[in-house]
Each structure stands twice: as structure tokens, then as C-alpha cells.
């Protein structure tokens, strides 16, 4: 039973659960809203952009990030905590030879702490089913045509781990500051459906 979670029935179930928990006095009516607001306020793609820009300018940070992302994030004041449990993060690096792309085929697992809420297409059955079997075609639909020689590695966030793509630093950006580089990074670049 690893099929799609249909949005509407699950949403209805969550609403019912919330109502029952409130009725039984186990949950304060505002408690959940407050927790969600605090969480989504901190969770933004701007966090992911900072991670990438730092990795581009600091080889030591990049190495630590690729080795153990959860241990490296606090160096720039970030973490994968804030949800129900701290999530394990893997940062996967694009190179001249390898391009990485991320999906959750079972539902919509996503590094929300670093990227904010996921885009609608990420949750669509079309993306989830096709990017695992035909990544080159899917990436082309996003306007990203990779050379035939580039090896594509797809990462299915099907269990406990979350992923973030470290895009390649664009050429001729040696003169840019870390702040300026931050502005070059895009959310799709961190999912792998864009180059940067």
C-alpha cells in the first residue's frame, strides 16, 4: 500500500482528528496554528540559497556539507530541526559529469526547513512517476537539456532522509560576493530541475 496519498481524504481526516483532539482537551485550538506558523516562518528557500553560496565560496564548508550536512548546517545558523523530529539531510553535488535530481515517489517528502513548502508540481503524480523512469525528458520539459554524457542520478526521498542538490557554480562569477551569489541560486536548482 505505497500508493498516492490523495490530498482531499487525508485533509478531511486531519481536520476530523484535530476536532477530536480539541474536543477531548488534548489540543489547544490555537496550539497547532502557532506551531505551524513559527515553523513555516523560519522555513524558506532563502536558507537553501545561503547553504549553496557558502559552499561555493568555502571549500572546507562544502566538504563538511557533503560529508555530514546535519553537522555542517549549524555553521551558518541553520538546522533540519523544527519539525516533529530532526531530519537527516544529504547534500548531493552536481559536477561536470553528474547531475542530481530529487523526488519523493511515495508522497511529497521535501527539505522544508531549507526550501520552504514544496511547489505544486513536486507533489504532482506526473512528476513523481516520470522523473524516476525518464529524468532526461522531464528535465527537458523544465528547460534543462543536459549533454548525453552527463550521468543523471535520481534520489527518491522515500523514507527518513531528505535531499538538497548543490548546483554547479556558474562560470564568470569569481568576482561576486557570497551575498551576490546567494541571489543567483533558484529553488528549482536545489531540487535539480534547473542548473542553478
Amino acid at each position: 500500500m505505497s500508493d498516492d496519498h490523495d490530498d482531499s481524504p487525508i485533509a478531511a481526516r486531519v481536520r476530523e482528528l484535530e476536532a477530536i483532539l480539541e474536543e477531548k482537551g488534548l489540543l489547544d485550538a490555537q496550539e497547532l496554528d502557532r506551531a505551524l506558523e513559527a515553523w513555516t516562518h523560519r522555513a524558506s528557500p532563502a536558507n537553501g540559497f545561503r547553504v549553496v553560496a557558502r559552499a561555493w565560496v568555502d571549500d572546507g564548508f562544502r566538504a563538511r556539507l557533503l560529508q555530514d550536512a546535519n553537522a555542517a548546517l549549524p555553521e551558518i545558523g541553520l538546522s533540519m530541526g523544527g519539525g516533529l523530529q530532526p531530519q537527516q539531510l544529504h547534500v548531493v553535488e552536481n559536477t561536470e559529469r553528474v547531475h542530481n535530481v530529487i523526488v519523493c515517489t511515495l508522497c511529497s517528502c521535501y527539505p522544508i526547513a531549507l526550501l520552504g513548502p514544496s511547489p505544486t508540481w513536486y507533489k504532482s503524480p506526473a512528476y513523481r512517476s516520470k522523473v524516476v523512469s525518464h529524468p532526461r525528458e522531464v528535465l527537458a520539459q523544465f528547460g534543462l537539456t543536459l549533454p548525453e554524457t552527463t550521468e543523471i542520478q535520481v534520489w527518491d526521498a522515500n523514507a527518513e532522509s531528505r535531499y538538497l542538490v548543490l548546483p554547479r557554480r556558474p562560470e564568470n562569477t569569481e568576482h561576486l560576493t557570497e551575498d551576490e551569489l546567494t541571489k543567483m541560486v533558484t529553488r528549482n536548482g536545489l531540487i535539480g530541475t534547473a542548473a542553478v
Binding site: S133, P135, R136, E151, Q153, V154
Partner: peptide, 25 residues
């Protein structure tokens, strides 16, 4: 224990030259 396991597209789908990696108990 959970493992990162990599599969070739050929093994999974009978076509393609990419790989897919999953976390598997």
C-alpha cells in the same frame, strides 16, 4: 538499519542510462 541502495534504470525499468537511489530498511 537503513541503507542507501542504488539501482540502474535498466534494472528498474528495462531502459534508461540513469540511476535511482532509495533509502531501504
Amino acid at each position: 538499519e537503513v541503507y542507501l541502495v542504488r539501482f540502474t534504470a535498466q534494472e528498474l525499468f528495462g531502459q534508461g542510462d540513469h540511476s535511482v537511489t532509495l533509502s531501504l530498511w
